[in-house]
Design a protein around this nucleic acid. Sequence first.
DNA 1: GTCAATAGTTTGTCTAGACATATGGACGTC
DNA 2: GACGTCCATATGTCTAGACAAACTATTGAC
Lengths: 246, 246
Amino acid sequence: MSESPLSIPLDRSSPVPLYFQVAQELEQRIQSGDMPAGTRLENEVVLAGRLGLSRPTLRRAIEYLVDRGLLVRKRGVGTQVVTPRVRRPVELSSLYDDLSQAGQRPRTEVLDLSVGPAPDAVAATLEVAPGTEIYLVERLRYAGDEPLALMHNYLTLDRVELTREKLAETGLYQLLRAAGITLKMASQSIGARGATAAEARMLGESRGAPLLTMDRTAYDDIGRVVEVGSHVYRATRYSFELTLTA
Amino acid sequence: MSESPLSIPLDRSSPVPLYFQVAQELEQRIQSGDMPAGTRLENEVVLAGRLGLSRPTLRRAIEYLVDRGLLVRKRGVGTQVVTPRVRRPVELSSLYDDLSQAGQRPRTEVLDLSVGPAPDAVAATLEVAPGTEIYLVERLRYAGDEPLALMHNYLTLDRVELTREKLAETGLYQLLRAAGITLKMASQSIGARGATAAEARMLGESRGAPLLTMDRTAYDDIGRVVEVGSHVYRATRYSFELTLTA
DNA sequence: GTCAATAGTTTGTCTAGACATATGGACGTC
DNA sequence: GACGTCCATATGTCTAGACAAACTATTGAC
């Protein structure tokens, strides 16, 4: 509820846009607890004046934080800091990213890396002609010593060059990023089913044990399909954490 | 790749902002196939001039569509329509909403609606003192004649008044909306496990059958906890569809 | 005391420009 | 023919203001 005069150092010679400098600084102060939940910002006109910015520029900074859920604005009332939450947006990340971030030691066993004709269902999703030659990847992922997931991926040959070595030591999404491919969007389907005998053997579960399934189609920034994946996870060891916003 | 002069009717007396009128009209033309993937927009200055708008206003319309993934901008190049995809954003919806939208007939059996002390774990998540009196809701959801999910919800008493009748005939989230509560954010955890004997009986599965589990905490626009839910779904009948964006 | 009109505050929308910077092609040189 | 330079083009950032609309609190009438 408090309202303190705000001062932010700006570097007008920096290539970082002013609105972004402001947004970053504000976010830092919110995350650090410097501006706890409920703190009210001064009104936009005064604040812009104090910072030596135009109101549109300041508004853009605030807008950025409102979109990310750190601030709330109400016309005629003001702008205030929201109760802090897990603000992790729904992430477009791979299992490797997730595990690295969680501080776990990911290990990959590449069971198969081959080039062959795409199964019909995969070809349709990848938007290539049936029977087109594509990469077929099958990997077993470990977290520490425990097997965690059995993953199947399908990619066209023209976007990136895959080798067993690269796949074993890093994540598929890291390889894609390194190849200059930016993943923009993905549609996923998350379900569950019992483990087949083969799956159970590889994952160290018993037959029929509940597995989480995740099918994903990933698209780049202009909407082309990049990757199709079909994965199963041990339900006892993994769950999907999501943050949804309205 | 084509580029056609664009004309959009604007109503300056409408309460709908101009930038939004433009955005809606553009979205409609993209969705209808009128502007297929790859179509390039005229540059912003010319377009703003033709529409009789300032460039910032036009940019705001375009920005809105870029954020939603319908357009891509590249500096020095131009703006073009993206390959059409399922654009459904990650939804903050309830099962009732999902089923209604899918054209299915949702039915609810209210197994329990009582007021009692919050279990410790729930109290912590709801951010109330341990033992505080809250709503305890247990519902069995059907799609058509088939049982689909067993849902547990926990809510504080002060936000909305619940009755068995209201819960039976509509969704919890609809009741919240009707009470003027806007859900802004939710964090979910999706996992899987085998059905207990009691769950199996109610859901018409056998014991140990794979179930999808979903735990959700929902927050309103200023970050207060609104609802805590713990649900299980029949894996053979339900899966979560998500669209992620970077 | 209750309720409605009103004034003040604050964000929402919009304008008309200016300059910066990334991109891609054309042109010229070697 | 290959390569680098320059230029046209388009989006990115920023300014200084104007008016509109929503919300709050106060004031006034009954």
